[in-house]
Design a binder for these strands. Structure first.
Lengths: 351, 351
DNA sequence: ATGGACGATGTAACCGAATTCACGCTATCT
DNA sequence: AGATAGCGTGAATTCGGTTACATCGTCCAT
């Protein structure tokens, strides 16, 4: 069941078999046919390990994410994988669970498997780790982190713009007291969004009380608990912005349990736009991160990143991705004021 | 940056380096230390491909799922990965997207990478595919499919029991007209649940009208549309059972949009118990598939499946996993009847 | 003293492909 | 006819580890 057996059966050398497998043009059509038939009858399966070893190329793209349990990531993974496969690449997924030890383990795995490139979609990677890849001339693309640096492509989601859209929407609906539920603030990604909120908040001259910002954990239970704390505040905000949809959904649970209505009593806006957000009750108004674009750009950065001639990594390109505001029904006019606010009907299916 | 360089620096043979890496007991402690220091200073990273090729073992466990976008699977993946890593194995994930072509592609990937075992968590694999693994003496464990066969371990979720629990719960609340939203009925997994529903329905002598069963697609939008069809029925059912939580959440959207209340006007029960189900409004009553148990048993089956002496696969063990009924708030008494039904309060956090 | 057992290490074959280089054959040009 | 180019093919090397087997002391029992 190896190339040698195929070669013997087809009465050619192993080199010819290898060439046939790889679609080399310098194999005559009938030889190729003979080889293919031999592979067929032997049920031949290529050994990827041997191929990678022999050729020095693995055909693998690494994808490091923080938490596969957060629906945003599977959606991203799927998009990434679809594109990668269409380019003849495979994907190696690793998740860090926000844990530095595990992160290091993920990086090691990528290195060990000799990936052709890595997309790092978690910001919890200390910068010095990058050098591991750079030293080996492995293209890297980062989502959403840190300073520009030579040789590193970065995809930046324009969080400030996203937050601004949400804030604009809310202020236009008359909201002045807007709360924020952040992710765990020891994470860079969470800090970025938090800062965007603070800046926008200041720009709009809103009351940015310290207790208006509560820390969640990017998961529903964190949003639930954070919202409970917010609801217990003396001066309750009329709107809440959350750092991701999961948090928002958890927060909605707490709001309902307090006997309040969304959006009549309190408005809420999420971030990410996961599939389910269109199906909550009410459907969640959110800021979509266009994950397909992210995936597309990431792969483009990875595969286009090597100068085809010198094989040296090109200088890292910087990409900026614009979030898209998705008005649904969880955010409405501030209570007690008459605003024209149209309820939308069929907004669940056409996301 | 290969073993040879390390060997030279540490002044030993490559064999000794290899032994050190693999923790062989027959390396003297100080030699091992010397080798390790050499690896350190050279920033040595093992080449997994070469290792796999040389040793014939890949240390990889394959995991084939149908749709990474359905939150049930990431939860399963995570559990599986956690356990695998604790056993020193890595996980290779592949998803079929319910697509036969892609399924074949997944199987090929597993074969090519020479996995040490495969957990097939999608039922959309034609039985003949198994022979690919069996022929190569690769342990296989199936979730939830087909007939017992020698050499194949199977994990069977007791769907009939799960459906029965839900049905019992509903009938005790007075429901007689119970609808079912199935998965795509061309899939085995969906058919299994559908049949369980039909049998249970018959057992309870319920009106199993044909139009009470509507086909979804395992995703929210399918549940939404299916529910719209059900709501348009002349005699509307008072309760709906769905084939998974995603479907249930979609269906809830349709119910709310029709101006109905859950559970006062209509009860709904899901299947799976994904994280989010505790945070919908109302929290979703569902039948939990204990995914951690599934993962644990799967790995146990895979790793324990080879006779340690003969290296022949042992006869496939059969495991049965009992679902767990999770009463929350989306199912209540049949409308118009007085039933004692206690609303639960803090059921979101303690899933 | 001697043979054997054992522990630590080295030597070299091997895993299954990819790839370089050489070679033979045919077709074309002068 | 002889030089030349090109195409299809094969032999042999290489990739980076693992591992069976060989080697060499050392220590102990006889």
């Amino acid at each position: 069941m190896n190339i040698k057996a195929v070669a013997k059966l087809a009465n050619v050398s192993t080199a010819t078999v290898s060439r046939t497998i790889n679609g080399s043009p310098k194999v005559s059509p009938d030889t190729a046919a003979r080889v293919r038939k031999a592979m067929e009858t032997l049920n031949f399966v290529l050994n990827t390990n041997a191929r990678a070893l022999g050729s020095g190329r693995s055909n693998l793209l690494g994808l490091i994410i923080s938490d596969i349990t957060n629906p945003f990531f599977p959606e991203l993974v799927k998009a990434f994988e679809d594109i990668a496969v269409s380019q003849g690449k495979e994907v190696l997924i690793a998740n860090t669970d926000y844990d530095p030890d595990r992160t290091m383990h993920c990086v090691t795995r990528m290195l060990q498997r000799k990936v052709d490139g890595v997309a790092i979609m978690t910001s919890e990677i200390s910068e010095h780790v990058i050098s591991f890849f750079l030293k080996r001339k492995i293209p890297v693309v980062f989502l959403d982190t840190g300073e520009p640096a030579p040789g590193i492509s970065r995809i930046n989601i324009d969080y400030p713009a996203g937050v601004e859209m949400a804030m604009q929407y809310l202020t236009q609906l008359g909201h002045k007291d807007i709360s924020f539920i952040s992710g765990p603030l020891n994470l860079n990604s969470a800090k970025t969004r938090y800062q965007a909120f603070m800046e926008s908040s200041a720009r709009e001259h809103l009351s940015a009380k310290a207790e208006y910002v509560q820390e969640g954990n990017h998961r529903p239970d964190g949003g639930y608990r954070a919202m409970q704390r917010i609801l217990a505040l003396e001066q309750r905000p009329t709107a809440v912005l959350t750092s991701n949809d999961l948090t928002a959904i958890g927060a909605m649970g707490a709001i309902f349990e307090a006997g309040l209505r969304i959006p009549q009593d309190i408005s809420i806006i999420g971030f990410d736009d996961i599939q389910l957000s269109a199906f909550t009750e009410p459907p969640l108004t959110t800021v979509r991160i266009p994950h397909k674009d992210v995936a597309r750009v990431a792969i483009e950065a990875l595969l286009g990143t090597q100068d085809p001639i010198s094989k040296e990594p090109k200088d890292g390109a910087q990409y900026k991705i614009q979030p898209i505001f998705m008005p649904r029904r969880s955010a409405g006019p501030v209570p007690g004021e008459a605003h024209s606010f149209k309820r939308r009907r069929a907004d669940r299916l056409h996301a």
